[in-house]
C-alpha cells in the first residue's frame, strides 16, 4: 500500500516536473523569437518568417543569419552550460552559494583566454577552436588552487571558506588581468574591458562550433551522472556507505563542471550568477532530484541568459549593455537573498 503511494507520488512529481520543463521550453522559444526581432534594425514578424524561409533580402539574411542567430544560439548554450556547472558545484561542494563566477573559475579561464588572444595580432585572428581548451586549462588550474587553499584536514571544505577563497582569488585574477592588459594595445584593452563586463563577444558561427562539442559531450555526461549526484548530495559518509566512489566521482564531476564553465567563458565574458540562479530556481520548481533538476537548471539558465541578452540589446538602443551586467543586476540581489537565508 505504502509502496504504491510512494510510487504514485513519485510519478506525480515527475509528471509535474515534465510539465514545468515544457513550460520553460515554450518560454525559451518565445524569448528566442522576441530576441530575433530585437535590435537596431527592426524586422517585422512577417519579414522574419520570410527570411527564415529563405525569401528575405540579402540584408535581412545577413542580419538574421550572420549577426543575430549565432549570438542567440551562443547565449542559450552558455546559459545552459553555466547553470549546469553551478548545479554540479553546489551538489559536489554541498554549498548553496557555489557558482563558477563567484568561485573565480570564470576569471581563471578568462585570464588564459586573454593571454592567448594577446599573442595574436588581432582578437579575431586567434584560433577559435583552441580557445575552450586554453580556457579549460586556466579554469582547471584556478579550481585546483581554490580547492587547495580552502581545504583543511579534518575539516574538509567549509562552505563559507570556499566562497571567501573564491572571491579573493577572483579579485586577484582580475587585478592581474588589468596589470597585464596594459602591456597590450588599445584594441585588446578594449577586449579585456568588455570581457570583464561580461559581454558575449564571440558572435559568429565558428564560435558556436567551438563551443558545441564541449556541451554535447559534457551536458549529457553530467545528466547521466544524476543518480550519483543524488547520492553525493547526501554527504561524503552516507555516499560512501551507499557504495559510491566518492573522491573519484567528485573529481570527475568537478572536471566536467569546470569544462562547461570554461567553454562558455571562452566565447562569452565573465557572466556570473547564472550558475547560482538557475539551479536554485530549478530546485524550487522541480525538487532536489538531479534527474529533473539538472535539465531544469539547463533550461532556466538558457532562459535567463537569452532574456538578459535581449534586454541588454533592447534597453539602450542603439548602444548595448553587456549581458553580464544585466545578469548581475538580476543575480546579485538573489545571491544576497540566499545569503541572508542560509544558516552559518
Amino acid at each position: 500500500m505504502s509502496r504504491t503511494t510512494v510510487q504514485s507520488y513519485e510519478s506525480a512529481r515527475r509528471r509535474r516536473g515534465m510539465t514545468l520543463l515544457a513550460v520553460i521550453a515554450v518560454l525559451i522559444i518565445t524569448a528566442f523569437i522576441i530576441s530575433m526581432n530585437t535590435g537596431y534594425i527592426l524586422l517585422t514578424p512577417q519579414e522574419l518568417l520570410n527570411t527564415m524561409l529563405g525569401k528575405g533580402t540579402a540584408k535581412q539574411e545577413l542580419i538574421l543569419f550572420d549577426f543575430r542567430l549565432p549570438r542567440i544560439v551562443i547565449s542559450l548554450l552558455i546559459g545552459a552550460a553555466l547553470a549546469v556547472s553551478g548545479a554540479v558545484m553546489q551538489s559536489v561542494f554541498r554549498n548553496d552559494l557555489a557558482d563558477p563566477g563567484i568561485l573565480g573559475i570564470n576569471a581563471g579561464a578568462g585570464l588564459m583566454v586573454m593571454l592567448m588572444v594577446s599573442f595574436y595580432p588581432s582578437t579575431s585572428a586567434a584560433p577559435v577552436f583552441l580557445l575552450p581548451v586554453v580556457a579549460f586549462a586556466g579554469a582547471g588550474f584556478t579550481a585546483a588552487m581554490i580547492y587547495l587553499l580552502s581545504y583543511k584536514r579534518h575539516e574538509g571544505i567549509p562552505p563559507i571558506r570556499l566562497l571567501l577563497t573564491g572571491v579573493a582569488v577572483a579579485a586577484g585574477i582580475s587585478a592581474a588581468m588589468i596589470v597585464l592588459t596594459l602591456r597590450l594595445d588599445p584594441e585588446k584593452y578594449q577586449f579585456v574591458a568588455t570581457w570583464l563586463a561580461g559581454s558575449i563577444w564571440g558572435t559568429s558561427w565558428k564560435f558556436v562550433l567551438s563551443l558545441l562539442p564541449w556541451i554535447i559531450v559534457l551536458l549529457p555526461y553530467v545528466i547521466y551522472k544524476a543518480r550519483v549526484m543524488n547520492v553525493l548530495s547526501l554527504g561524503g559518509q552516507t555516499a560512501t556507505g551507499l557504495g559510491a566512489a566518492v573522491n573519484k566521482e567528485q573529481f570527475r564531476l568537478l572536471a566536467a563542471a569546470v569544462g562547461l564553465a570554461a567553454a562558455s567563458v571562452a566565447v562569452s565574458g565573465g557572466i556570473g550568477f547564472v550558475g547560482l540562479v538557475g539551479p536554485h530556481l530549478a530546485r524550487r520548481l522541480v525538487g532536489p532530484k538531479h534527474q529533473l533538476m539538472l535539465p531544469a537548471s539547463a533550461l532556466l539558465g538558457a532562459l535567463l541568459v537569452i532574456t538578459a541578452d535581449t534586454i541588454g540589446r533592447w534597453i539602450l538602443q542603439p548602444s548595448e549593455i553587456p549581458t553580464g551586467i544585466v545578469v548581475a543586476v538580476i543575480g546579485a540581489p538573489y545571491f544576497l537573498y540566499l545569503l541572508a537565508r542560509t544558516k552559518s
Partner: peptide
C-alpha cells in the same frame, strides 16, 4: 560575501 555581491 554580502559586500562582494553588493559591489558586483
Amino acid at each position: 560575501l554580502a559586500g562582494a555581491a553588493f559591489s558586483a
